[in-house]
Design a protein around this nucleic acid. Structure first.
Length: 468
DNA sequence: ATGCATGATTAGAA
DNA sequence: TTCTAATCATGCAT
């Protein structure tokens, strides 16, 4: 109470001692406020005293007094004085550097979000559209699938970002209007200048913008993670599924003489692998991945044929079984369909197999189908191999055999050539040297078709030759 | 941890 | 362009 009196003294410059203030403010001061300075000072002192004691009174009393004060003719003047005082005290200090210089970090975040396409104008209508667009723009294009995935995820992030941003803005606006209303309300009883309200709004906005910055920051982080996951991690390797590898290996070993699948063949393989893969967990395999695989396979096979021997046998044997069956079926079919026997006399009928001895043939077949690289002997495998070539020759074209038979025949041929290779060698563990590999270390028919290879099996047209 | 297997990338040749 | 050869970097089994 002493303190209050002291302040009032300072404000009003008058001593309140001896005045009865309990009389109530609603009544005009009893005397002499007209003209004399003394009277005015006393008046102000009265008001101030009433203001200061208002908290000591009961709610009803205070309410009544407040109303009286609000209606007092001196109220506007007092209000502005108090505002001025308040302005000069510490309360207004924090408004000093109001003009916010654009936060460099915020600008950086904004720029990045803009660059990444998170903020800014929306292009494309959502993930589905993005995926569709990516798919449409050249389906077989290498990383279009991954890219569309990336775009879909980015769109997701963008959507989250925008909804959050909107939420914040809405909350900010709501809160601002609420505070403004509150302050306006209070300004009737408290010295709050419009300027101060403005400043308060500024403070609120700053608070909310710091939240926004956090949102932007985390969005940036999310985008960065996404980038590193999808775009920068191109090197990231995922092993193909077992089935996919099997399919590729089957093709490789059944086309060992010319393991250069045509574009169509690659597409087909990619499709096949993807279909198989999609049944389990895994990603699709693209044409370029098939190309990579064949590139790696060729070079690695060539580098260390010995290492791949077992694998080669395995796959050759595996395909040979199906090939033999298919060929047998096809030949049977062709026999019934076409009365003309191929001029070479070669057919997949045992009797007409142009092997030198029935014995070697039997052994060969046995070994072929069991996949063993056993120690059977082939008297003149060269002849046999050549004979087998005739299978691919013109003579065969007359027959009405399914197109795929040709490649299966190819398989058979290579199985035989491989097996022959083993038997020709010094022992069971001799390195197999395929006919198709020349001394320079290249696949012969990849560059110069050898006489061993049928004339119509040109380089890089493995599939096209099946149409003959 | 370590080594091998393997998919991806790169430079350079044809 | 596609291919080879070398290399990188990861996955996986030990």
């Amino acid at each position: 109470m002493d303190e209050q009196a002291r302040i009032m003294q300072a404000l009003g410059g008058v001593s309140l001692a001896g005045h009865s203030v309990q009389g109530g403010m609603a009544l005009p001061p009893p005397h002499g406020h007209d003209g004399t300075d003394d009277g005015r000072k006393q008046d102000i002192g009265d008001i101030l005293h009433q203001i200061m004691t208002i908290t000591d009174q009961s709610l009803d009393e205070a309410q009544a007094k407040k109303h009286g004060l609000n209606c007092h003719r001196m109220k506007p003047a007092l209000f502005s004085v108090l505002c001025e005082i308040k302005e000069k005290t510490g309360l207004s200090i924090r408004g000093a550097q109001e003009e916010d210089p654009p936060d460099p970090q915020l600008m950086r975040l904004d720029n990045m979000l803009l660059a990444e396409g998170v903020s800014g104008p929306e292009k494309g209508g959502g993930s589905a559209a993005a995926a569709a667009a990516a798919a449409a723009s050249g389906g077989a294009s290498d990383n279009s699938i991954e890219h569309s995935d990336y775009r879909a995820k980015l769109t997701q992030i963008r959507q989250i970002y925008h909804t959050e941003l909107e939420k914040y803005e809405q909350a900010c606006n709501e809160f601002t209007t609420h505070v403004m209303n509150l302050l306006r309300e209070q300004s009737r009883t408290r010295p709050i200048s419009p300027k101060e309200i403005e400043r308060m709004v500024g403070i609120i906005h700053r608070k909310f913008s710091s939240i926004q910055m956090q949102l932007k920051q985390s969005t940036c982080e999310a985008v960065m993670i996404l980038r590193s996951r999808f775009l920068d991690a191109r090197r990231k390797r995922r092993n193909f599924s077992k089935q996919a590898t099997e399919i590729l290996n089957e093709y490789f070993y059944s086309h060992l003489s010319n393991p250069y699948p045509s574009e169509e063949a690659k597409e087909e393989l990619a499709k096949k692998c993807s279909i198989t893969v999609s049944q389990g967990v895994g990603s699709t395999i693209t044409v370029s991945q098939v190309s990579n695989w064949f590139g790696n396979k060729r070079i690695r096979y060539k580098k260390n044929i010995g290492k791949f021997q077992e694998e080669a046998n395995l796959y050759a044997a595996k395909t040979a079984v199906t090939a033999a069956h298919a060929v047998a079926a096809a030949v049977q079919n062709s026999q019934t369909n076409s009365p003309t026997t191929p001029s070479s006399g070669f057919q997949m009928k045992d009797e007409e197999f142009q092997l030198d001895s029935a014995e070697s043939k039997n052994t060969l077949l046995t070994n072929m189908f069991t996949g063993s690289s056993g120690s059977f002997n082939l008297s003149n495998s060269g002849d046999m191999f050549l004979s087998m070539q005739s299978l691919n020759g013109d003579s065969y074209q007359g027959a009405q055999v399914g197109a795929n038979v040709q490649s299966q025949v190819d398989t058979l041929r290579h199985v035989i050539s491989q097996t022959a290779g083993y038997s020709e060698g010094l022992g069971g563990n001799t390195m197999y040297s395929p006919h198709s590999l020349n001394t320079n270390g290249g696949w012969q028919d990849a560059t110069t078709p050898s006489s061993v290879i049928s004339p119509n099996e040109g380089p890089r047209s493995v599939h096209s030759d099946t149409s003959n």
